[in-house]
Each structure stands twice: as structure tokens, then as C-alpha cells.
Amino acid sequence: MTPPQRQRRSPAPEPPPQPAQEGEGKVRNPERMYVVAGPDGERAELDLVTLIVARAADPPPSASPEQAALLRLCAAPLSVAELSAYLHLPFSAMGVLLTEMLTAELVQARAPIVRKARSDRSLLEAVMNGLQRL
């Protein structure tokens, strides 16, 4: 039996269009989400694997129940994806909640490692060593 035949595609010349224009499905919140992160107040893109950690052990009395729940969860660092899972909140809703909390300095964000044109070989080697131990 001969398998069906695929045809390879080339990299898109421009960055891929946003999903709303692409007709892939209307997303409620198609813009990229930015959160304030870092001591200089620079904006960073919120990623599924941005790590969030509470700045103080106990939620301040001013914290909303939603904020208090999040603070309890990230007493130790936790990814946005995990927070979204435990809080049963869509990823897009996490952006709003976390922007408030980063601005109020209730939590700290640790930026993810993303793929770059020039990959960091030492990072890949560390991952390989880690997987070897699995």
C-alpha cells in the first residue's frame, strides 16, 4: 500500500496574521496580552509559561477574593497555565487579573524562555540533561 503524499510548505514571508483576520475562529480577546513586569515597569507579553509568584505570604485585606485565591496558589512559583487550570479561568481572563496584580505589586512575573532565531545551546543542553534523568 502506498501512503498518501504531502507537499512541504515554505516559511511565511511575513509574520502570520492575527487569528481574527485569518478566519481561524473569532477569539474573544485577539490582541496580544501585555503585563507590566520587571522593576522598570517595562511591558512583557504574558505567556502560558510566564511564572507568577506572590510577593507576600498573606493576601492584603484589600485583595479581592479572586486575587486572594491566586495569591494562595502562587505562594511558590506557578505558570499562568497552571493558575488558569486551578482557578478555572480562561487564559485570556488571566491577563486582566494578572495586570491588576502586577500593578498593585502583589505578584512578580518571571519571563519565559522563548525560541529565538539563534537558540541558546547551553539551555538545550540543560534540557537534554534534565530529560536524561527522567
Partner: peptide, 14 residues
């Protein structure tokens, strides 16, 4: 077509 619901899922992936 659901993949694009998650912003940056592919762009940042190793």
C-alpha cells in the same frame, strides 16, 4: 483552528 485561541502558543515554543 482552535490552536490560535492561545496567544503565542507556537511563537514562543522551543
Amino acid at each position: 483552528r482552535f490552536w490560535f485561541l492561545w496567544n503565542g502558543l507556537f511563537e514562543g515554543a522551543l
